[in-house]
Design a protein around this nucleic acid. Structure first.
Lengths: 224, 224
DNA sequence: ACCTGAACACCGTTCAAGT
DNA sequence: ACCTGAACACCGTTCAAGT
């Protein structure tokens, strides 16, 4: 019987396995569940054991972010137009982050602390520079673009909590009820849009529109 | 001697004064400093006293968000073009959030839980609907737009921590050093843009470009 | 090199009790 | 209505000690 994905069976501890377990835990129960002590018991080890592999708790969160950024599969640079290339790169980042909505909040502040994040930033900045952005403009736009992918994932309706099935339906119902009880004179548009705030009717369309927004926005601020 | 802004002198506790103190604390030392016990001592009261005014800690954080959203001064609806109106509203939101970079992370997930946040959402959705967006499109775009204002504020270079003066300079220096030590063959663009990642050279320009991006992006995804 | 034991300061929260 | 005292379960972290 080999080790499980969570690494629960006896096997040497390692930065890698601990970070993997941490990401897994965050995916299942949310970031707040990622705790030194919880992680330790999941690996059948004493809390203090983790301090051999990580400086402190923040370092294990860094480890989570690193793993996600490292999972981005960047497309090979093509010679197509810059905005098509940008879209492809952003899509690759989205594909990597989308499976981790509950861990996504960790990502944005940690791009520049992560090796793989730096590679991403380099790539995006490079594309923007070739499109005519100055060094200052490119860095600002690149970091906004990467943060926006995270926003897209975290603010997808109905993906904010670790619940599933029964419990999720209950939450959805009560959200709907709350919105439906708003005064119709003051909130006509919100009432009409209410269902789309609690559940995403078409995820692919949602993300496609998000991508369009980001590419169009970038084109819009591109220096003449 | 009347009460101070933090409400440290003896005066009855209230939801309002507690939320104000919490926001102030978050602004000074960051969200993690906002703790039931810390807040209690700042108001010369026992930790359990807070539970009379708030259900739990999350409700305190809701209170912070509510205060920020309530501070938005919406422009009176004009009859100008939809994109100019959108820009004005987004600018108003930005103006309210900008003074609270360290508290901004609380805001995005709490728009729909806050009275003032609902008003904002209603307003933006209304504008988008008049511009031709469907109910589904409008809700998605509106929530992305509001989240993006937060992103703009939180990811402004150099505004991520509670430090000031001396200590801030030290952090900046070490960040610069770290970036400067990257292999130039692999990170040519990042090296060139490095300074702009640690300090914002021109805040107003930064936010102006952000606003342009959001308006242009919205225009770009507007249904034909 | 890698992990444990004991200890510390801090946290959110409940519940019964005071005024 | 509004606040306190005592208690509980949980947290991150240090430091000396084991193997």
């Amino acid at each position: 019987m080999a080790s499980t994905a969570t690494g629960s069976t006896k096997e040497r501890l390692s930065r890698e396995s601990l970070a993997a377990g941490a990401l897994d835990l965050a995916d299942r129960e949310g970031i707040d569940a990622v705790t030194i002590r919880r992680l330790a018991t999941e690996h059948s080890v004493t809390p203090m054991a983790l301090y051999w592999h990580f400086k402190d708790k923040d370092a294990v969160l860094d480890g989570i972010a690193e793993r996600v950024y490292a999972s981005v599969v960047l497309p090979v640079p093509s010679d197509g137009p810059w905005d098509d290339q940008l879209r492809e790169v952003l899509l690759a980042v989205l594909a990597a982050i989308r499976p981790h909505p509950l861990a996504a909040d960790l990502l944005a502040p940690r791009i520049m602390k992560s090796e793989a994040g730096l590679v991403l930033a380099e790539r995006v900045i490079g594309m923007l520079r070739r499109a005519g952005f100055s060094a200052s403009e490119a860095s600002q736009t690149a970091s906004f673009l990467l943060c926006s992918i995270v926003t897209l994932v975290t603010s997808e309706p109905g993906k904010q909590n670790p619940l599933t099935g029964e419990a999720q339906e209950d939450v959805d119902r009560s959200k709907r009820a709350k919105l439906a009880s708003l005064p119709p004179k003051l909130f006509p548009n919100l009432l009409e849009s209410a269902p789309y705030f609690v559940t995403c009717d078409n995820e692919d369309e949602y993300f496609a529109r998000g991508m369009d927004f980001l590419v169009e926005g970038t084109r819009g601020v591109r220096p003449a």
